Amino acid sequence: MVLKMDRLPGPGETLIGDEFIMAAGGKGANQAVAAARLGGKVTFIARVGQDIFGQQAIEGFTKEGISTDFIVQDKVSPSGVALIFVDQKGENSIGVASGANGQLSVQDVSAARVEFETANVLNPEDWKSTWFKVHRKWSEDIGSPSGVFQPFNIDAKINAAWVLVGLLYGNGDFTRTYEIATRCGDDADCNPASAGGILGAMKGYKNIPDFWKQGLAEVESIDFKYTTISLNDAYEMSYRHALQMIERNGGEVRENDIVIKFQEPAQVQLEIAFEGHFPIDKIWLERTLEDETSFKFEGVGFAVTGGAANKRGEEDYTFNVELYIDGDLIEIAKLPTKFQARRFYPFWRYQLPMGEHEVILKLLNPTDKADVHLEYAIVYGNEPFKVEY
């Protein structure tokens, strides 16, 4: 139960609040819902009272697909509640009445023994055990052709996991968060940066330790590589976009303050990339496309790495290349040599019938000022490639 107020009341003081909100929550419940929404099979173990709060909790968990088989409805104690005062600056004071959940017993937990024995349980004290479990299940890249069949791994799902591991086990400490997110590996520069950005947004700029802000003043005016945008520009754009989003969603931007409209969190649609596609082969092409080239594969799709590049000192150029699959013209691909406008993967096609296919590439406008280089093709099948060992 949340009461929004201009300021927090002092001892013995009574204040009139602005807005009252009742919402489900609690650290354990929030983590359970987050895990369920990420696709995990979640069982919640707790005690609630035989009251409206207990019933709402069970119904909420059920709606999220969380098993409530081991939630005990206590016949004596009421459900636990939290009373939260929040001021205009976001500071809060919280009082908790554990109620029935404070009566959770060893016997209650032991009753769920089979769930512990069959689950991928994460150790809340040991991030390395969590890393190991995540790595065993999710370390095979099925997406980006740049990360398949080689150590360079930029697969989004496992790197998102390392960001979360850093945040969860960093426990609000910037240095610890950075350390864990970095040591998890894979995209080990972006992941700690993402974790730090999220933690900074949660805690606020003034609460970021000076150690992690040192050196900013010297680089804030320098443009990022391949852009005309500096860190100062990024600050200004981010702030402007934030104000626009607040207004677009019913809030107000006033002269001296900002009003953000309260919104109930809405579950977004789960996106599944490369569904039914599994990398099964890597065909080395290693050739310059001078007029026409081809290769054959067996599968349901492919992606070719490489791209267009200028010869030293020459102006930007755009190649036009016809892509044929099994004799049919699929597209005329435009391949700019300009780095900022390049086509990251020059050719690809998915969701083909499983079987043998031939790819033909025809260069329509060759030039002696630039080249189109083809590195390799990743082939996708409809079943995972398994290494027996």
Rank of each mutant, 00 (worst) to 15 (best):
R248C: 04
D233H: 04
M245K: 09
H241R: 09
E298R: 11
D210N: 10
E322Q: 15
A333S: 14
L289Q: 03
F295L: 06
H277G: 03
R312T: 12
W284M: 08
V268W: 03
I246K: 04
F262Y: 15
H277V: 05
M245H: 03
V268N: 03
I260M: 10
L270I: 05
L231G: 07
D316A: 12
D223W: 06
G276W: 05
L285F: 03
P209D: 02
D316T: 07
E331F: 05
F295T: 01
F295S: 02
I325K: 04
A266W: 00
A303K: 10
T227E: 09
R240L: 10
G299S: 07
E255A: 13
L289M: 07
N207Y: 10
F339P: 00
F297A: 08
L289P: 01
T288Q: 12
N232T: 08
A309F: 05
Q263F: 11
Q340R: 13
T305C: 13
V219C: 03
K282C: 13
R343H: 07
E271I: 14
E275Q: 14
L216T: 10
Y235A: 01
E271S: 11
T293A: 12
E286P: 00
L216V: 14
D291A: 13
F347M: 09
Q263C: 11
K338Q: 14
F347Y: 09
W284S: 11
G215S: 06
D316G: 08
F262R: 15
W348K: 08
N320P: 00
S230V: 00
P336M: 10
A234Y: 11
G276L: 11
D328I: 09
P279F: 06
M237Q: 15
K225Y: 02
I258C: 08
D233M: 01
E292G: 01
I325M: 11
P346G: 07
Y226C: 02
Y345F: 15
I229Q: 10
K261A: 13
I229M: 13
F344G: 04
T227Y: 06
K338F: 07
F297P: 03
E275W: 02
W212L: 15
Q214K: 15
A266K: 14
K261G: 00
K225M: 05
G301H: 02
F295V: 03
K213N: 02
G313T: 01
V219Q: 04
M237A: 13
D291K: 14
N232L: 06
S294G: 05
A217M: 09
K334N: 11
Q214E: 15
G301C: 04
P265A: 09
G327T: 05
Q269R: 11
T293Y: 07
V219Y: 00
R287K: 14
A273E: 10
F224M: 10
Q244K: 14
G250C: 09
